[in-house]
Design a protein around this nucleic acid. Sequence first.
DNA 1: AAACAAGTTCAAAGCGCTTTGGAAGCGAAT
DNA 2: ATTCGCTTCCAAAGCGCTTTGAACTTGTTT
Lengths: 342, 342
Amino acid sequence: MNLKQLSLELGLSQTTVSRALNGFPEVSEATRNRVQLAADRHQYRPSTRAKGLATGKALAIGHVIPVSTKHETMNPIFGDFIAGAGETYSRNGYEMILSIVDDQNENDVYRGLKARHSVDGVVVHGPRMDDPRIALLNEIGLPFVVHGRASGVTAPYSWVDVNNRRAFNRAADFLIDLGHRRIGLINGLEVMDFAHRRRNGYMDTLTANGIAADPTLMRSGEMTEEFGYTSTRDMLALPDRPTALMTSSMILAMGTRRAIEEAGLTIGRDVSVITYDDELSYLRNGGDVPIFTATRSSVRDAGRRLAEMLLADIANPFSQPQTELLEAELMVGQSTGPAPHL
Amino acid sequence: MNLKQLSLELGLSQTTVSRALNGFPEVSEATRNRVQLAADRHQYRPSTRAKGLATGKALAIGHVIPVSTKHETMNPIFGDFIAGAGETYSRNGYEMILSIVDDQNENDVYRGLKARHSVDGVVVHGPRMDDPRIALLNEIGLPFVVHGRASGVTAPYSWVDVNNRRAFNRAADFLIDLGHRRIGLINGLEVMDFAHRRRNGYMDTLTANGIAADPTLMRSGEMTEEFGYTSTRDMLALPDRPTALMTSSMILAMGTRRAIEEAGLTIGRDVSVITYDDELSYLRNGGDVPIFTATRSSVRDAGRRLAEMLLADIANPFSQPQTELLEAELMVGQSTGPAPHL
DNA sequence: AAACAAGTTCAAAGCGCTTTGGAAGCGAAT
DNA sequence: ATTCGCTTCCAAAGCGCTTTGAACTTGTTT
């Protein structure tokens, strides 16, 4: 069923039917009802393609997911993030277009989305330091919001981010207050902006408390369970081993726990662990008392917020870049305790 | 830059330019080159919308992801699955459209995708027993492939699935050969077809070996770390506790490991664990020697295969339903050993 | 030189919608 | 009766492509 057939059946012009359905004022309530009824009866839905052609809007948002060719690692937060964003989109009649792309050809993908008029805007995932995508998107004039920030980029742009630095400040502070002085950090790849900020937060707090940062206690890599495990195992084998560890994700923390237990140590007593927690739906951090002490912020909420911001940006093309800094909360769980006397 | 402008610049008709770019034979190599060069120079990409309108194809595949309203749980395999499928799509010039939808309104989403001509086909995620979506899609005539199968549905349909039954047969056999008789199962929700098949595989093998299935050793629920933990903890507290556990995912297995260690037991000695492993990129099962003994099959590969099948289906509308049954391999790791004498 | 075939190119219609610029109908005001 | 102002409706153009059917060049046969 298309507009033509529908208007023929109603004995009205396509114009009137279209206007009736789109809520224009110059159509009488009587005919609007008649049209609406017929449309419902036939389950009429305007073709997105045709509508897009006619209006110049795509009613779609692109998500470009970089997958590193080397590691083939899919960021585990991704599912929950788009679950959040997806809610906002469908509530507003938008579709979500996903492009999985190896980090070599990213630019072409953005250019392609723009040139083919496939989307009205994009969200940038996994920003890196000095990320060139921001300049690119500004240049080609495709509205976008970044999930995170890109240190080193001076041009203004819209973003939604967690206060990673503050989160790691607080986590480090919490451990120091418990008497820990040897505190390790197991972080994501430091080209990633969030990892950079987290390390800064960690280091600043150590320094502010008169603790010299020790390179042997700082690791960064792909945030897999195994990387959490090997990093922890290696650090625990050091002559002057850490009494506390900070990890950048629950997945890393799982690996950390494995290594600690394998070493015959007890988490929260021999070694304290505090992790960053994205509140992934399948990795809930325990029930009443969290398993891990954690700084946490829901990535799903971030997705929701970011999508709203992007849609607002698109609706009002002359708006200034918007930003939103979410604060992570510190949840005290069972994985931390006073520093042991070694 | 659009077709009209391009053809004007070249002094050719839109027809010729279009044909040159789409590789039609009735255009001379000389002009084809000239056209191609100009197109490259301007980074010309035909508008998907316009192309779609003209051809009647959308050049897009829909993925409808059900998110249960109750649990808000996003299936963690989802990211890796679409990473696989996405590769295939982009290689073939297709786009991927994602719909996150709570399981109430699923039907409307499929109908909408069809009516709005947004996609040429869809992939059905997370099939349940007697899943009504298959009948619906057949009725509205939207090509689809199911990731998994739906027991109870008699109509033919295309699917890609892992031999879940066999995988759990083999896992159970392996444990029984090691002398285990008290074997627990921690499974996904049993409305999900895969969980149903896995339980059947498990039970058949127990029965075939003269072991009576014990309901207290079988749990099913959302496959979160916490569910793995609580299930394991409860089973270990039984007077006649299991000496081995089978879990339906690595995430569950992590919870299982936590409970085992918390009980002061050693995995692989006091309690053997064998898990199903989807080879998620951020949850690799160890290095040379896997951490967990596992039956494994890459969900990313499944995504790739399924996407190929769907595109082939769409290219040839009169094809018969295709099916592909993948076999999981059994990897022996450190989490299993001979049954202890309790 | 005419006729034909093969090889190239083109004008125009059509895909399903929105939107512009009227036009028709009708009662009130001039 | 004419004009005006409202309300309600419509014909047709246009969005950027593909595709049909025809036309125009060549070169080859008769």
